[in-house]
Each structure stands twice: as structure tokens, then as C-alpha cells.
Nucleic acid binder design. Structure first.
Lengths: 201, 201
DNA sequence: CCTCCGCGATGACAAATGTCATCGCGTGCG
DNA sequence: CGCACGCGATGACATTTGTCATCGCGGAGG
């Protein structure tokens, strides 16, 4: 039996995925988690063959959990299952040690197939997505530019951001201006959206 | 047997939900759809007891599909299953004739339970969400204010919006200003976010 | 050693944005 | 009828935002 731990924050989706995997005769869901921290705990306790992780989760996200799992549960292979096939996500997931990257709008039967392929030692990545990740290149934003752009994402004014990050207003404007240039956007809103679409944020 | 049509754009989630419902001895998934238009077609062809609809889908969304279904397949009860429990969504879903409103982060077993309750003629709505919808009050934005705010959501400049909606720049600024006041925001970005959080957009 | 780069800051400037008062037009409602 | 309200527009104004040049500091790397 292939032993799987499942991490996904929406519990109805989590339950549905568990039932989907339960249909497979050679797969057994041995643990469930609603966020990245839980995923690590459950995996440490159950030592599964596979950890199936969503990315967008409250608290520690799936990518951070993957990194932690590599250290704490070395025998466990990480499969990422995410809504958004963003190039930056794929890149970070691979760097965090994931061996497969699936998007939720691929067919349901791909999931079990991917798990079996991973068990045979293969990596499973959508070819189109891999190409997009390579052609998009690495994240051009410096760490600080990322901080400032993220802080701008919720509609904060320059002043808010300056206070929150302990910077002067001018500095914030400079970082935002740089981020706007690097994302080829026309204002901070477009910059935030383009960066998010790439998975840079 | 309770005959169900399932509409959800992410095909892995759709398949997983189908398998979840398949576990129930008295429920049968007789059709699947990836968007609202398909949902209406499939429901017309199969005449199910229940249409289980996601809201966020490409093309016609779940709420619009509910409205159409009420006319075209009168015997079919609509259950909305959505990621976001936004007050405005609930309100619109009810106005469109839905009899149940579930969010995806409630437990998986609630789904079949809700379907059975609907079949007995009950309405199924999360009490907390119902309270939020009532306390939030109706959408304060005029139709045109909604248009302009939606057009601003993607980072478009005033000029872009004016061209797209065939308005003068001054008019666009006036509408945006009004929307900012009504949402108690400090700029258009906050206004967009607050409006989206309420399901007003 | 020197250079590049990221970080943080300042000042000046142009452009975009948000606010307000005011106007006309039409529609619905008491 | 008179009134309120949504729609569309204009002009003026203050504020915010985006851009640019320039500075200093420190670490990494040829």
C-alpha cells in the first residue's frame, strides 16, 4: 500500500480528495492536515510514502512545509497540488525538494497516476508549466522590493507601508518604483498583479 | 436515488466531489459540468433533483446558472457550493432561487447531509453567514459604480477605464470617488478589496 | 583594491488620483 | 407637480503617486 498524508485547508475539498484516493486499491490516506504545520506533525507521526500538499494554506504554506519535511521526514516524497500553476510557485516548490507539481484543473485520474509515478522514482511536472517557468526566468525582485510590494497589495498607502516596514516614505516610493519597472507595469496595482501571477510575491 | 448534477471548473476538485458523493448509497451523480453554461445544458438533458453549483467559474457563473435553471428546469433545486462565504454572494444566490449555500471549508460530510435536507424541502444556510449577510445590508453601490470599480480592479488607469466604458475621465473619477466613500476606503485599491470581500463586485 | 549591488535616504519634479461644487437630463414616485 | 436619484459631464484644487538624480554605507566577488 502507498501511504499518503494529505494537506489542504478547505475541508470539503480535503475530504473529497481523500475519498478520491480511497477509491484506488493500492493507495491509503493515513493522515490529513489543514495547514503546513499540521502536515509536518502528521507526517512525522505517520511516516508516509507521499505528502500531498496544497500551497495556499493559512500559517505555514505547502512550500515551506515541503522544505521542513525534507529535513524531518527524509523518506517522504512531496507532491504539490495547487490551484494556481504559477511559474514562481513551481520554481520554489522544486527548490524546496518537491518531486511533483500538479494543478487542480487537470483531470482527477491524473492524481493517482502521478502518485504512482513518483513512487517509481519519477518526477511529475506539467510540460507546459515547466516551459513557462523556464521562459519566465527567476524572480527579478530583490527581497526588500518583494516586502514593499507585498505590503502594498492590500491597498495600503505609502505612509502605511513606511510605518509598517520602518522605512522613510521616499524609500518606499523608490522600491515601489523599481518594482513597477521590473514588472513592466504602469502603477503599483498592475505590479502587484503581475508579480502575483508569476508567483513572485 | 437522488440524482445530482455537479458544476465546478477545477476538474480535479470536480472529480473528487463526485467520488465523495458516490460513496453515499442514496446519491448518484448523473452529470458534470465545467462552467455555468454546461451546467444548464446538462441539467436540461438529465433533469436531476439537485444541481450543485460552484460560483466562481469561467463564462456564466453559478449564480447566473441558478437563475437560468429556475426557468428551464423547474423541478431542480439549486445548491451553491463556494470557496468564499461572501455576504453578497449569499444574497444574490438566494435571489437567484438557490435553496442551499455551502462553503468549501465546512466538513465533507455536510455536503451529503445538506443534499438530503434540501430534498426534504428544507433550506440550508450557515447561520453565521446568514447573520453576516443581514448585518452587512444590501449592496450600496449603484450599477454604474460597480462597473467602474470592477474595471479598476485590474490596475487600469482612469484613462483606460474611461475608454473602456465610453465615459469622460472626470466622470470615472467621480464614480470612483463615490465608490471609495461608500466602501469607507481610502483609495480605489481598498475600495476594490472591500467590495470584493462583501461580494459586491 | 576596486567595483558592483542591495539597502536606506533626500529633494525636486511631473503626472495621476481623489474631492468638491455645480450643471443638465431623464425616470420614477408620493 | 415636485422631489429624489442615477447618469454623465466640467473645472478647480489638494494630495498622492511615480520618476529621477544623487548621496552614504556595507558586503560580495573579480
Amino acid at each position: 500500500m502507498i501511504r499518503v498524508v494529505l494537506a489542504e485547508d478547505q475541508s470539503m475539498v480535503r475530504g473529497a480528495l481523500a475519498s478520491l484516493l480511497g477509491l484506488e486499491p493500492d493507495i491509503e490516506v493515513v493522515g490529513e492536515a489543514a495547514n503546513g504545520d499540521e502536515a509536518v506533525e502528521v507526517a512525522e507521526a505517520t511516516r508516509p510514502d507521499i505528502a500531498l500538499l496544497d500551497i495556499e494554506m493559512p500559517g505555514r504554506d505547502g512550500i515551506a512545509a515541503a522544505e521542513e519535511l525534507r529535513r524531518r521526514v527524509p523518506g517522504c516524497r512531496v507532491v504539490i497540488l495547487t490551484t494556481f500553476g504559477r511559474p514562481g510557485y513551481l520554481r520554489r516548490a522544486m527548490e524546496a525538494g518537491a518531486v511533483a507539481f500538479l494543478v487542480k484543473d487537470s483531470p482527477a485520474r491524473d492524481l493517482a497516476a502521478a502518485i504512482r509515478r513518483v513512487l517509481r522514482g519519477e518526477r511529475v511536472i506539467d510540460p507546459g508549466l515547466a516551459a513557462a517557468a523556464l521562459s519566465a526566468g527567476p524572480n527579478p525582485l530583490s527581497p526588500r522590493e518583494r516586502d514593499v510590494l507585498s505590503a502594498a497589495a492590500d491597498g495600503s498607502t505609502i505612509n502605511d507601508i513606511a510605518l509598517r516596514l520602518h522605512l522613510s516614505e521616499g524609500t518606499v516610493r523608490n522600491y515601489l518604483s523599481a518594482a513597477i519597472q521590473k514588472t513592466a507595469a504602469r502603477n503599483r496595482i498592475e505590479a502587484v498583479q503581475k508579480a502575483q501571477a508569476q508567483g513572485w510575491l
